[in-house]
């Protein structure tokens, strides 16, 4: 088994002390590779916690640069980072928290023609994308490649998340068949979002990744967890895998990926 240095034992002591994680779980984290889609509101806390947890390799993909309007919720980016590529800004903070973590940056758009190749190398994907086409793309690609992932979305005061184990639990498309038409989605820059709920949701996603890798607890599968921060009510809506799901059902009709057009919403 992997041996830990005295410094590593101290750094990860609060994980090792957990019976459900322990020495073995921490060793598994060190061997794991997790991809974060989007270095925005959800990706920011997820990236910080995965790095802090000692996940061996964290990949992060985002084509954007840091804008001043991001700083209200994307806590991995600082004022000094305005204008810097988000993936570089995020990588710098992850390394500062934990130099042991290997960070892979992808400054590009995730698209139908590159997603499968990129995700194939990872054990778990955190979807922190800020738009519906990418969320469906991540779902479909992860189902096709058999890679577990955490879906997440936030808007205004609301958040929702579910974990998908392809072939074993309901996928995003089992529940939400197609992206909403572009004109049905509020113009995101006009909808607004309470900054702290990005942390609430992205942190749940990070916890799901850590649980999956260490084998601790039970994943948030076959359920959609939603909250409304106005009342701080959380709801857990049971979901079921659908035989007629177009991507994970018995006779899938989606067997190839294609890019969908939609104006990019910059909320996450």
């Amino acid at each position: 088994m992997k041996t830990f240095s005295q410094q590593q034992l101290e750094r990860y002591s609060r994980h090792i002390l957990l019976q459900d994680v322990g020495v073995e779980g921490q060793a598994r984290l060190g061997e794991a590779r997790v991809l974060i889609v989007g270095a925005g509101g959800l990706g920011a806390p997820a990236a910080l916690y995965l790095a802090a947890a000692g996940v061996g390799t964290v990949g992060i993909i985002d084509n954007d640069h840091v804008d001043i309007s991001n700083l209200q919720r994307q806590v991995i980016h600082f004022t000094k980072d305005i204008g810097v590529a988000k993936v570089d800004s995020a990588a710098e903070k992850m390394q500062a928290i934990n130099p042991e973590v290997s960070v892979r940056t992808y400054r590009k758009f995730l698209a139908a023609d590159n997603i499968r190749e990129i995700i194939r190398d990872y054990h778990f994907v955190i979807d922190g994308a800020d738009n519906f086409p990418t969320k469906f793309l991540v779902n479909d690609a992860c189902v096709m490649e058999g890679i577990p992932f955490s879906h997440g979305g936030i808007l205004r005061f609301d958040g929702q998340t579910m974990t998908v184990l392809p072939g074993r639990s309901a996928c995003y498309r089992c529940t939400f068949r197609t992206p909403p038409p572009p004109d049905a989605v509020p113009t995101c820059s006009q909808a607004g979002v309470l900054g702290a709920i990005a942390g609430m949701l992205g942190t749940i996603q990070a916890a799901e990744a850590l649980k999956y890798i260490t084998g601790a607890g039970e994943p948030l599968t076959d359920a959609l967890l939603t909250f409304d921060a106005r009342t701080m009510n959380f709801r857990r809506v049971p979901l079921r895998r659908q035989d007629d799901c177009p991507v994970c059902g018995r006779k899938p009709t989606i067997t190839e990926l294609e890019d969908l057009e939609q104006a990019v919403c910059s909320l996450a």
Partner: peptide
């Protein structure tokens, strides 16, 4: 709790 961490490391082996 570092003594317990060490105990767990030893026991794991």
């Amino acid at each position: 709790p570092m003594n317990l961490v060490h105990a767990k490391v030893e026991l794991a082996a």
